[in-house]
Design a protein around this nucleic acid. Structure first.
Lengths: 135, 135
DNA sequence: ACGATACTACGAATCAATTCGTAGTGTCAA
DNA sequence: TTGACACTACGAATTGATTCGTAGTATCGT
């Protein structure tokens, strides 16, 4: 059993995936509306269409052609994709140091006390899991 | 006083920057040797040369032409560059949630208890600074 | 002085991502 | 039925990153 190498979508692809992850299955028009609302005038309809076609070829999306307006949905999980991207960055940018990564993430953008707590709990949970089932 | 938009170097550029950050000022030959040692046969000398010339034009590197073999050094700080990259990713990939980012970073690569502790301390320090000097 | 060697400069090919125009076709209201 | 409109398919231009060959020139050992 071999695991397919997790995909690291390009920026544009990611933007499309985000819409589909948030909204669930959607047509090209749906996606285009969301994206062009965010950055008005920047992205033509057929651009999104083409991208989504390519993404389908690549296996990033799945397409239901039952209706005239095809309905697309992601074929890759959000978390898994995030993990692939951050893992890559961890190596390339931080030489594998998760602490450095976290440090710069905090520095990059103000983080609320609530979120800090959440992170603390995560660390605790992670440590516990390591001790127990720990691979 | 306006802050120049922090640069987010490409993958190849980053690889070169890493060598310079680690080793200090170096010639094209130096950099090429380090990089081609890591991935043998993949990168020609003039490729690195050209990249470093372009990076100099872009303002990523600074060049000392006193000697025949020009000596390059970074014009961007490692931490600042890391911050720019991770900040961008935080928005694009994690919709701004630092907790999610950390979660997937931990999932991406096993992290030692020592490093977990380091991270915990970082969180504490961060919170303290927020309370005090705040914003 | 001469040839081998080490550098830089530069143009150009290649490759991937992105963008969009145009064509073909189906759908629907009047 | 017919015209306006909405979709998909597809080819092609554009852009940016990357790669490398070739040329020109300085340097060094003999």
């Amino acid at each position: 059993m071999s695991t397919a190498p997790s995909p690291r979508p390009t920026n544009s692809e990611l933007e499309i995936l985000r819409v589909l992850w948030d909204r669930g299955p959607a047509t090209v028009r749906d996606v285009h509306e969301v994206i062009s609302a965010a950055r008005p005038g920047l992205t033509g309809y057929t651009t999104i269409l083409k991208l989504m076609q390519i993404m389908t070829e690549k296996g990033l999306l799945e397409r239901d052609e039952a209706e005239r307006a095809h309905v697309y949905k992601p074929r890759v999980a959000r978390e898994k994709t995030q993990r692939a991207i951050v893992g890559h960055m961890l190596d390339r940018v931080f030489s594998g140091s998760a602490a450095d990564l976290m440090m710069q993430a905090l520095a990059a953008k103000p983080t609320s006390p609530a979120e800090i707590n959440e992170m603390r709990e995560m660390l605790a949970r992670y440590e516990k899991e390591q001790k127990q089932g720990g691979k």
